[in-house]
Design a protein around this nucleic acid. Sequence first.
DNA 1: CGGCCAGTTTGATCTGGATCAATCAGCGGA
DNA 2: TCCGCTGATTGATCCAGATCAAACTGGCCG
Lengths: 253, 253
Amino acid sequence: MAGRQGVNPALERAGAMIRTISPNRASFGRCSACTVRSLSICGVLDQADLAEFERIARHIHLAPNEALFTAGQVAQSVHSLTAGIARLYKLLPDGRRQVIGFALPGDFLGTAPSDRYSFSADAIDSVTVCRLSREAFTHFIEERPHFLIRINEFAARELMLAQEQMLLLGRRTAEEKVASFLIGWRERLAQIGDERQTIALPMSRQDIADYLGLTIETVSRTLTRFEREKMLIIVAGGVRLLDASRAAAMAAA
Amino acid sequence: MAGRQGVNPALERAGAMIRTISPNRASFGRCSACTVRSLSICGVLDQADLAEFERIARHIHLAPNEALFTAGQVAQSVHSLTAGIARLYKLLPDGRRQVIGFALPGDFLGTAPSDRYSFSADAIDSVTVCRLSREAFTHFIEERPHFLIRINEFAARELMLAQEQMLLLGRRTAEEKVASFLIGWRERLAQIGDERQTIALPMSRQDIADYLGLTIETVSRTLTRFEREKMLIIVAGGVRLLDASRAAAMAAA
DNA sequence: CGGCCAGTTTGATCTGGATCAATCAGCGGA
DNA sequence: TCCGCTGATTGATCCAGATCAAACTGGCCG
């Protein structure tokens, strides 16, 4: 619990590595063929709406660790994630980092009360997003109340997740944090259709630690202990849950 | 950082004391005379809208520690706080508590993705709210897109506060937490027009501790130290900031 | 195939904040 | 005025998780 937990050289290196938004290729993947449309904010748009949405959206690809946007920048765009996983985080001036969430395909990044981004987002693996100018997006919304309702539902869901995370960060033990994370992450993967036995963990241990308010060592030790206790097996790129009910019990209490 | 921090007998007593919603007096305070209307979701309603809003709203008074609603209950109502201060919190099965926010006059409690309350809310001091049935509220919204935009702005603000709080809970030291809380609370009080030199703290030390992910002893000790260091003076019902810039510096870093 | 390098794991030690345990202070009621 | 109760403060001690410090692992490049 010391003051500078979360500051580490690896992170600073990573930070330096992250390029600002490059002149990405804008692809012509059509919204009507979007594989996550029903999960995304676009799930309530009809063909006509979708055509108009497509007109104002750009499809962007980002390489691993490339930034979608950075806290403090003027918020010119909103994003809807269509592939890959992004990490959303805030930094303290001395480099301590809090990951406030992981964005999955279908997630919307654009609910913000200010004209500047209040957090940073970058690609964990290879990511694709639909990027819309805030202005065009605002205009698009104004004429489509049902779409606004959808946006609102997404914001409400985000808010509930954030409140759950506050409970985790403030009142759960390290063991409970890790178990909750695994159960919650599995749940979210299942919602986007990924229901393999093995829980994929594309983010680094440092990302997990910064999400749970722990150090990388504590995350690693806790996972190792779970493995020793036969609750799971650590595999390349994830974990395989052997005793899901025990994990769920830890996560609940 | 032990597992059961936040569980305490005083809380259990308080919990038992909190009555379920009593047959409160519904007053006739008219919305057009509402002192916090411009701050609240109603700030964008015109006279006609307001009359309709009034028709579907009930004005409710709650005594200190009385519950507005409880996590897990079917969410029948939404609320707009018009006077007093409420604490919003989540509990773990063993009684550990996380205060996820304090609601001030003008705040809206109703952004939720589920048909059950995901957190509990109760009055800290004497509280007045406008209570609307979810159903009527949803209907009211559907016909008023500009109002929905307002609701959305409120949700976005809530979300940003929640993200800021995640950073605090996950990565700040006890000292930084307390300083951040004081600065942030003063800010919020100022926004509703309370700009006295002394920062009013109507909530208990336990509430503050549960908001910051600390114990009551740590909050108390930290405030005492701040006083010893002449950063502030502890007074009945609040603190007087002597060195706001030092507090702000602590809160920032 | 070997050497590097980034990320991860493991071990030893330390410490910030929790826990346990008394006071202390303010207030309402007799 | 005194008593009892509730919440706050203060002190002593403890320990979960941080910090410091090595290994270890796997992938990539020459």
